[in-house]
Design a protein around this nucleic acid. Structure first.
Lengths: 331, 331
DNA sequence: CCACTAAATGTTATCGTTAACATATTCAAA
DNA sequence: TTTGAATATGTTAACGATAACATTTAGTGG
């Protein structure tokens, strides 16, 4: 494995000259030496050792992606897609990406320090730990979907409130009056809480407020069994804040001989590619994952380039995608 | 950011003693010092700098995952799942994972060298470059789904041939006589070629060989338009070597007013979670992605622990999952 | 009490690269 | 010719950790 030292010997110069060429500081090296060194580099296939560079210059070129949770988070198509886009964009910008799933925020610092990470992106809820994380790691941090009330948090999110509103307005417009909501961790101020607030505000205005028993702050398992929905006193429609869960729910219904949207209408969230594949195709609130990844990476890179840059919060738009999972109840 | 030097000063010992404690060489340090040092470590939250360790010991703790292709490969649920599992397993074993997508094998060496990778896993076809890659990188390499004829290639794959057989036998058993095959890169000896060979061998034995015009070595776009299948001279069933493509195909059919399985039966491959969600649910050949990831990681770790270990080829089983996308044509 | 092993600890050099500073060299202006 | 800036190159030390070897200390049997 060839090093700068070897190249320097071969070219009859000092390692520092080689280092300058490797790092593109062409103004400081004579044209003659640049050419000589570059030709040796390509002849031997020299590759800089980033561990060494990282040690000596404190710039590792590593960005860490932190996902809260456990197990295989990349199986979830949303996570797979956003992680994939982010590492693609980071790779295009010359950075290497490490993905870690952590349970505890203490793991975060360990992960960031071990590799001298130059920046980090966080998914999932970290609101309560943000201050701590930031204090322990003086590098640019960018969050996704955080509703932390702290100032100075750089966050890229979507308009979850509007998403809820869109869902509610559409249901109302289709003649639904008794509807339900299903999300998780509503007591934390996360995405689902905002979706809930948007959703319920519209319903209230329309004169058909969400009753308490039709708000499910729960994983799918604890949802009331689908056959409850056959009886007319149950909601005619459900807003489930994730396509994946909505699809799973519709499967459970089907396994009991019930059908979407005849027995219960469904609106999902995310607009994953599979949402168009199901039967009926799922009506859902769309967020643009690629765009979110793009903005997140760009924001991080900006902050890495200029650490005095003020924090920023970006809210991306969402839209309603009408497919076939909501019944038209207007006579 | 605290280093071993700081700890050594605080404890009144040399850095070497600290290093020994950090690396768990407890037999070489007195109980007293072990405790003193460990308490300082946890008090200050010391984290070893792996760049430095990597430089000095040549052991970086990094495993690189190389995917051939471009763009966001993790969006594909198969890749997302297997990459997710592998990094999970590697993380559990104390290693860090870097995922790279490369177009050219030359990138491979660059990626492996920059981080002193200790091992690498390859997806996608690299058969012709394996020799070269191995020569340039003297670290354990494990491949997935390679049909390289080179000796000494450690590979974890599935029984693709059997997968093809299972599909064909099932179709025959259901009364299909005129069937088609759709895969990619059949001329390379990859997974799809094996699936094709298994598939066609069974059909031949059964007396209804695949005609040339019903073998599509093509991306979906270049498949004949679905409405061709309405006319009786076209295949009554298609074996499409990827669930994702099969689903996409069935959507294209539906958009033209045709239906699976009435107008054309379909068998997919992989048994992705979405295969059960579609209408009709997709009959497919199942491979166990988690198990594949498990074996691949374990094999790599074994080879990293003992570099003299002989190469091995592991072939995992596949099975037929009958759902609803194949019509029963028996009278 | 000495020699001798085993256990505990320390010293030095090194990994590959870069920052910071130092030294030549060149050329133009004074 | 001298001076000064600009350009090109080199030297040294440092980044944090570990390997390899060296030394000290403690404990053992003769």
């Amino acid at each position: 494995m060839i090093t700068q030292k070897d190249i320097a010997r071969e070219a009859g110069v000092s390692v520092m000259t080689v280092s300058r060429v490797v790092n593109g500081q062409y103004k400081k090296v004579s044209r003659e030496n640049i050419e000589k060194i570059q030709s040796i580099i390509s002849r031997y296939g020299y590759v800089p050792n980033l561990s060494a560079r990282s040690l000596s210059s404190k710039s590792s070129g590593i960005v860490v992606l932190i996902i809260r949770g456990k197990g295989n988070r990349l199986m979830d198509p949303y996570n797979g897609a956003i992680v994939g886009y982010m590492s693609q964009f980071l790779q295009e910008a010359g950075y290497s990406t490490m993905v870690y799933t952590v349970l505890d925020y203490r793991d975060v610092t360990r992960r960031l320090r071990t590799w001298n990470a130059q920046g980090a992106i966080f998914f999932g809820m970290f609101d309560n730990e943000i201050e701590q994380i930031r204090e322990e790691n003086k590098i640019p941090l960018v969050f996704n979907d955080s509703y932390s009330t702290l100032r100075q948090v750089t966050n890229i999110g979507i308009d979850d409130f509007k998403g809820g509103q869109l869902a509610a307005r559409y249901l109302i417009g289709m003649g639904h009056r008794l509807v339900g909501f299903c999300g998780t961790s509503l007591s934390d101020n996360g995405v689902d809480r905002q979706r809930f607030l948007g959703f319920s505000s519209v319903l209230k205005e329309a004169g058909c407020p969400l009753s308490e028993e039709s708000v499910f702050d729960a994983d799918l398992e604890s949802l009331p069994p689908p056959d409850a929905y056959a009886d007319g006193r149950q909601p005619t429609a459900l807003f489930i804040t994730s396509d994946l869960k909505a699809i799973e729910f519709s499967l459970r219904m089907r396994s009991q001989g019930l059908h979407v949207p005849q027995d219960c209408s469904l609106i999902g969230f995310d607009d994953l590619p599979i949402a168009g594949f199901t039967t009926p195709p799922l009506t859902t609130i769309r967020q643009d994952i690629r765009q979110k990844a793009r903005y997140t990476v760009d924001t991080l890179l900006n902050h890495m380039a200029d650490s005095s840059r003020p924090s920023e919060r970006i809210v991306l738009d969402v839209s309603l995608v009408v497919r076939g999972s909501v019944a038209d109840l207007r006579t």
